[in-house]
């Protein structure tokens, strides 16, 4: 995909990082406001799609290191399983970190619900970004011949 016009790229410069901040906000406050792991991870993965649309795939493949997304996914999945297995003396998925509602501390009073939301958010954001990157790199396989000039929509 060729890069779009300068208007779209400036809009991407302005708004793309706020998208990541908003996704992290939805993700870490999943235990008390609407949202959660899956929704926040999907919003963070939209960032990759936005960069792909605005700046073109050739630049995005130069910027993005796929091992980081791979690491995100594996770390999220392993943290999720670890948090689930830690409650094994009682039951699988026992909420062993739960505190009374007014208690303070680093971990929110919701306990493993908040931590699992962060873990699932990491996993979903890594997986969906990897899907987009892998699909784009995959369709470049078919471009063996030099492509003809694209007929863009705005240039």
């Amino acid at each position: 995909m060729n890069p779009l016009s300068v208007v779209v790229r400036t809009g991407c410069d302005l708004f793309a990082w706020f998208m990541v901040v908003f996704g992290v906000n939805v993700l870490v406050h999943g235990y008390m406001t609407p949202g959660g792991g899956f929704q926040g991870g999907a919003i963070i993965a939209t960032f990759t799609a936005f960069l792909l649309v605005a700046y073109g795939g050739r630049k995005l493949l130069g910027w993005a290191n796929e091992k980081i997304f791979d690491l995100f996914e594996e770390v999220g999945l392993l943290a999720f399983f670890f948090l689930a297995f830690m409650g094994f003396p009682v039951t699988f998925f026992y909420n062993y970190l739960v505190k009374p509602l007014a208690a303070g501390g680093v971990v929110p009073p919701a306990g493993t619900t908040a931590l699992m939301s962060i873990a699932v958010g990491l996993e979903v954001s890594g997986a969906l970004s990897m899907v987009i990157l892998t699909m784009y790199r995959g369709i470049r396989m078919f471009e063996t011949a030099p492509m003809e000039e694209e007929i863009g929509h705005d240039r």
Binding site: G35, Q39, A42, T46, A49, I132, M135
Partner: peptide, 17 residues
């Protein structure tokens, strides 16, 4: 909750894919 997931997945990511 479902609205956020639908807007992110359905409107943005699946269109890109």
């Amino acid at each position: 909750d479902v609205a956020i997931a639908e807007a992110a997945i359905g409107a943005a990511l699946s269109t890109t894919i």
